[in-house]
């Protein structure tokens, strides 16, 4: 491939990394805004929605352009295919960040039911996964993603413990219903972001090694074993 390909190809990778940084930041800040009742921060997150959509489109356009003009193969092809998937996953993460920021706005002026500990902790686990996935993408090194399966399990368990905690608050005191319903939703958004990090892991793994792996394969079995918990549809975003 010529220099022009190399340059456009490197730019594509940078575009994905930039989008990764922004969407992870949106997710992180959205949960901070919720924790601290920070409307300004929530507004910042919401204002980034258009930028994420634009990045998503730009990456797709660039990747398709490289595929048609240069018909890359092997590592180049796998990398571009990976970029085309990552932009989708990252767009979802960014959108979940925006959704969480909207929860912050909806709960404006309301004191938290109790000190918000689990949700920020959950957000930390998820953003760490996202950052490690982006690191792997940037450095062509899958070592930081080896334990994603366990980390994703932790995220799933946190979601259910938040769910149970909220249920008991709601039963105790109906005036907490609105807040708790929102916390449950945020926990679900974060859990979905964890799943997206796992999907990123799969695609990056394929990019680096050429071998396909499945990261959250036990998922269905697990959620049904859980007994009584609402079972979510895997196809859902």
């Amino acid at each position: 491939m010529g220099e022009r390909f190399e340059q456009e190809f490197e730019e594509l990778k940078t575009m994905v990394l930039d989008m990764g940084k922004l969407s992870t930041e949106m997710l992180d800040k959205s949960v901070r805004s919720l924790k601290n009742n920070d409307m300004e921060l929530a507004d910042w997150v919401i204002s980034k929605k258009g930028e994420i959509a634009r990045m998503d489109d730009d990456i797709e356009t660039r990747a398709l352009r490289l595929l048609t003009l240069y018909q890359p193969v092997a590592t180049d092809m796998r990398t571009i295919a990976c970029c085309l998937k990552l932009n989708t996953y990252l767009a979802r993460v960014g959108r979940y960040g925006k959704d969480i920021a909207c929860v912050t706005k909806a709960l404006k002026g309301k004191k938290h039911v109790s000190k918000l500990v689990s949700l920020p902790y959950m957000a930390k686990l998820v953003t760490d996964m996202l950052n490690d996935a982006l690191y792997s993408f940037e450095h062509f090194d899958v070592s930081k993603m080896e334990d994603f399966s366990e980390r994703d399990d932790d995220v799933d368990h946190l979601r259910w413990s938040i769910f149970r905690e909220c249920l008991s608050y709601m039963m105790e005191e109906p005036k907490y219903i609105k807040q708790c319903a929102n916390y449950i939703m945020v926990a679900r958004y974060l859990e979905r972001c964890g799943d997206n990090a796992c999907k990123m892991n799969e695609k990056i793994h394929y990019m680096v090694t050429g071998v396909r792996v499945e990261v959250d394969k036990d998922y269905t079995a697990e959620c049904c074993e859980d007994g009584g918990e609402p079972c979510q549809n895997k196809q859902e975003q």
Binding site: M1, G2, F5, A74, T75, M77, R78, G210
Partner: peptide, 14 residues
């Protein structure tokens, strides 16, 4: 998709 040898990879990806 996934050549084994570096030389092959280099050649086919130009």
């Amino acid at each position: 998709e996934r050549p084994k040898k570096r030389l092959t990879e280099k050649y086919i990806s130009g």
